[in-house]
Write a protein that binds this DNA or RNA. Structure first.
Lengths: 107, 107
DNA sequence: ATTATGTGTCGTATGTTTGCGACATTAGTC
DNA sequence: GACTAATGTCGCAAACATACGACACATAAT
């Protein structure tokens, strides 16, 4: 039950980040931001078939995971990809999976 | 609510696979199988601080996601990495993230 | 100062995941 | 056949995630 103790930190962080991208809405948001590099704000909820409230929550999770950034710009908020955070995630992902790929499979 | 309709198939599948690796226990199992290429069976539950039942459930999820294979070998079951499934996952992951990395960030 | 607009946060309902003990199953051993 | 060992499956409880309407908050326009 003592989650903090049971598993290796790096496994826990990779798990945490994977969870963030484990929802189609969040992937769709990232995809949308990649396409419209103009970092448009929450009219993302027109593009995605979910209520504005729900989209806002997904945006928060993405922001907390440092996969996107949000900048206040007058009335609107401009969201965009956080390439630093994305690269960090990529690095963790790669190092885990290259370990798996190096392993010999013997069955 | 009609999950099947809302999002693109490829997003949904990437989300589904990401969810599988979004738990430290499942990552720990994969790591263990990579280290001990001898594909040892469910004494994984000695290595991981969870009950045998719980480990067995995680193994099932990994198997259903085609990230591992299990072969009956007399009384024991030999689990090992499913490199084909892992590669497939890697491909999906890469194609999504290379799209993100190509995007210009404008804020 | 009132109103309209773009947002975020709270509370709540409903669904999903996690973890586990108790039971079932199957393969070898005596 | 009865016994043990290695597993898997069922059913429950507790924790967590998802979705949303109602409300609160700011900024800008009138």
């Amino acid at each position: 039950m003592n989650k903090g103790e049971k598993f290796d930190d790096s496994l826990q962080e990779l798990a945490r980040l994977s969870k963030v991208i484990s929802h189609p809405a969040r992937l769709a948001i990232l995809e949308y931001l990649a396409k419209t590099r103009t970092c448009i704000s929450g009219d993302i909820s027109d593009y995605i078939p979910l209520s504005r409230t729900t989209v806002s929550q997904h945006l928060r999770e993405l922001r907390e995971a440092k996969l996107i950034k949000g900048e206040i710009d007058g009335l609107k908020i401009s969201y965009c990809l956080n390439s630093k955070g994305i690269k960090r995630f990529n690095k963790m992902y790669k190092s885990f999976f290259s370990m798996l790929n190096k392993a010999e499979v013997s069955c």
